[in-house]
C-alpha cells in the first residue's frame, strides 16, 4: 500500500542509489526474479485476474431483473399479480359461459347463438335493418363528388357507430366497392343514381355530429361545390339486402 508509512522503513533493495530514474526503478522491479515473496504476489494477481474474469463473464448478467433494485422487483411482481387477477377473472367468466352452454340449458345457448346470428346478419347485410339513423342527401349537378368522397363518408359513418349503411340502392357490406366510371360513380359495378342518398342506421345524433365536424363529409362536399343535406330520423329502414350465400 502506497501510504503505508512503514513501507519506507522496510523498503527492499536499492538504498543509496537515489539518483536512478523512475523508469529504471520500474524496470528493475518488473524484472523476473523468482523468489518466494514474488510467488505470493503472483498468486495474488492470479486471484485478481480470476475475480475480474469471473465478474465479467458471470452467467446470466443479461437478465434485467438480476441487477434490478428491490422496489423495481416489487413493482414488477405487483404488475404480474394484477395481470394474473385479470386473467383469472376472464377465465372464470369464460368457464361460466362454457358450463352454461354445456349444461343443457339450450335456451341460453340458443339465445346466445341468435344474438350472434343477428349481429352477423346486420354486419353482412343479409337482413333488413330498421331503427333510428341519419339520411344524407348529396346534390351534385356538376359531378364533383367522386368515389373517394363516398369511401370517406362510409368510413366516417362506420367510425361514428353506424350499424348498417346504404348508398343509393346498394347495401354497403364488407366487399362493397366504389369506383369512378365515365358516367359517374360506380358502386360494386352498379352506376350510382343522382342525387346520392346515403342511409345509415345508428345513433342519429352521433352520426350527425360526425358528419358535421370540421373536415368531415359535410365540409369536404360543400368545399367541392356540391350540396349536403342531412336529416336525423327515428325510424329509418334499410330494406336492401345482400343475397346470402350460406343461408
Amino acid at each position: 500500500m502506497a501510504d503505508d508509512v512503514e513501507g519506507t522503513e522496510v523498503a527492499g533493495a536499492g538504498e543509496g542509489t537515489d539518483v536512478r530514474s523512475p523508469m529504471s526503478t520500474l524496470a528493475r522491479q518488473l524484472a523476473f526474479r523468482p523468489a518466494r515473496p514474488h510467488l505470493v504476489i503472483g498468486l495474488l494477481f492470479v486471484v485478481l485476474g480470476l475475480l475480474v474474469t469471473v465478474a465479467v463473464f458471470r452467467p446470466g448478467t443479461d437478465e434485467p431483473w438480476r441487477t434490478a433494485r428491490t422496489e423495481d422487483l416489487v413493482q414488477i411482481l405487483d404488475d404480474l399479480g394484477a395481470r394474473e387477477q385479470r386473467l383469472d377473472a376472464e377465465t372464470a367468466r369464460l368457464s361460466g359461459l362454457q358450463s352454461d352452454l354445456e349444461s343443457g340449458s339450450t335456451i341460453e345457448a340458443l339465445a346466445e347463438s341468435e344474438r350472434q346470428l343477428e349481429a352477423l346478419r346486420v354486419l353482412t347485410g343479409t337482413t333488413p335493418v330498421y331503427g333510428p339513423g341519419l339520411r344524407i342527401d348529396l346534390t351534385d349537378p356538376e359531378g364533383v363528388i367522386d368515389a373517394a368522397v363516398l369511401l370517406d363518408a362510409v368510413q366516417e359513418l362506420r367510425d361514428a357507430g353506424a350499424e348498417a349503411i346504404q348508398v343509393g340502392d346498394t347495401r354497403v357490406v364488407v366487399d362493397t366497392w366504389f369506383g369512378d366510371g365515365p358516367e359517374g360513380i360506380v358502386v360494386s359495378g352498379e352506376p350510382l343514381a343522382k342525387p346520392i342518398t346515403i342511409l345509415a342506421i345508428g345513433d342519429p345524433e352521433g352520426l350527425a355530429v360526425a358528419m358535421s365536424i370540421p373536415g368531415g363529409l359535410a365540409d369536404s362536399v360543400r368545399t367541392r361545390g356540391a350540396g349536403f343535406e342531412a336529416s336525423t330520423a327515428q325510424a329509418l329502414t334499410i330494406s336492401v339486402t345482400v343475397p346470402s350465400t350460406t343461408q
Partner: peptide, 26 residues
C-alpha cells in the same frame, strides 16, 4: 475487485517511490 485494484495501484505507487515491500503489499 475494486479493493484489489486499489492495492495494486498502491503497490505500483510504492514501486515508483522506491519503498515497495512485498510483505506490505501482500
Amino acid at each position: 475487485i475494486v479493493a484489489a485494484i486499489d492495492a495494486v495501484f498502491g503497490g505500483f505507487r510504492a514501486i515508483m517511490e522506491r519503498r515497495f515491500d512485498e510483505r506490505i503489499f501482500v
